[in-house]
Simulated scan of single mutants.
Amino acid sequence: MGSSIRFTGTGPGARTQDGCSVELYRRLPADGEAETVAAVVPAGGTVLELGSGPGRVTHALIALGYAVTAVDNSAEMLAHIRGAETMLADIEDLDLGRTFDAVLLASTLINFPEARTRAALLAACRRHVAPGGAVLIERRNPATFFALQPGPAGEEAGIRHIIDSVRHEGRLSHITLRSEAADAAWTQSYTCELIDDAQLAEALADAGLRLDRWLDPPRRWSLAVLA
């Protein structure tokens, strides 16, 4: 599993089995994920990064002194990672037989629009976190989940993001996002589900985890521990 939701779309370069553009994600920078880990996990610790993509967060973690095992189900994504152990696997089926100081489930993977898949993601986190370790989970901000509207959606590393369309349906949002660089453009359509505090707490409990605390005021990042 290499993306938060099922992606479809167009654009140059290789695509993963779930539709992500390898080239687009290769160009995108980290967005403070490594610093979030560093706030709770001592330098030198081991980190299992689930859904690493081409390593934008992996490389930032390595630069801060962490020993990273990067997991993705795309060999094309993993080929861009340097300095980390890599594992080609679906997150849901992963069982390395060892544990880590921290397990990172970033890129809003938890917003996958299927309860069974979300449960499998959290079960993988539970299998791999060491006693006393941390599971760090990034979700879409529930307070602004349904505020998303068509129009400009920011710029990073010379790539402009534009929301072409949004359709809200119950707890789901169906989004088409266009990303434009000077030499290329990509369009990706995906669906994500609102995950509120109560739903996250219940899902964690079902997986044998519990919410320890929120790591940021918007409550996008949660820290879970063994129950």
Rank of each mutant, 00 (worst) to 15 (best):
A115Q: 08
Q17W: 08
A130N: 05
P113D: 00
E49V: 07
R27C: 12
G97K: 06
A60R: 01
N141V: 15
R82P: 08
R82L: 14
I91Y: 00
A134L: 09
V22A: 06
T58K: 04
R127T: 13
D93T: 15
A43M: 10
F146S: 12
G32T: 10
P113M: 01
F145W: 12
L61C: 06
T144L: 08
L104R: 00
V103S: 03
V37H: 04
F145E: 03
V40F: 01
E23T: 09
A79N: 04
V57A: 14
L64V: 11
G132F: 07
A79V: 09
A34N: 03
A120W: 08
A89M: 01
N73E: 12
L96W: 01
A120G: 15
A119W: 05
V57G: 05
I81M: 07
F112T: 01
A34Q: 01
A38N: 10
P54G: 03
A79D: 09
F100R: 02
S52C: 10
T86Y: 03
V47S: 10
Y66L: 11
A102V: 04
T46Y: 05
F145A: 09
S52G: 12
A106W: 04
T117G: 12
P42V: 08
V41P: 13
C20K: 05
V37G: 14
L48I: 05
L64C: 07
E76H: 13
L122P: 02
V22Y: 01
R118M: 10
L94T: 09
E85M: 11
A39D: 12
G32D: 06
A123M: 14
R82E: 15
L48E: 00
G83D: 02
F145V: 12
V47L: 11
V22P: 06
V47F: 12
E138R: 07
A120H: 11
L61V: 02
I137N: 00
A79S: 15
A120V: 13
F112I: 06
T69I: 13
A63G: 14
R98Y: 06
L121Q: 02
E138P: 02
Q17F: 07
H59R: 04
D93G: 11
G132Y: 04
F145D: 04
R126M: 05
V103I: 01
G97E: 09
T86F: 06
A79I: 12
I137V: 14
C125G: 08
T86A: 08
V68C: 12
R98M: 04
I137E: 01
Y25L: 10
P54M: 07
Q17G: 08
R116L: 13
R118W: 12
R140E: 13
E114S: 14
C125T: 07
E35M: 11
A79E: 10
F112Y: 03
G51F: 12
G53C: 13
A89W: 03
L24Y: 03
A63L: 11
V68H: 10
A70Y: 04
S52A: 15
I91K: 06
C125V: 13
G45Q: 01
G132N: 03
G51L: 11
F146D: 15
L109E: 02
L121A: 10
L104W: 02
P29S: 03
M87Q: 15
G53H: 00
R56N: 12
A123W: 09
A38L: 11
F112A: 07
R126N: 02
R116V: 13
P42L: 04
T46Q: 08
A147K: 15
R56W: 08
L105D: 04
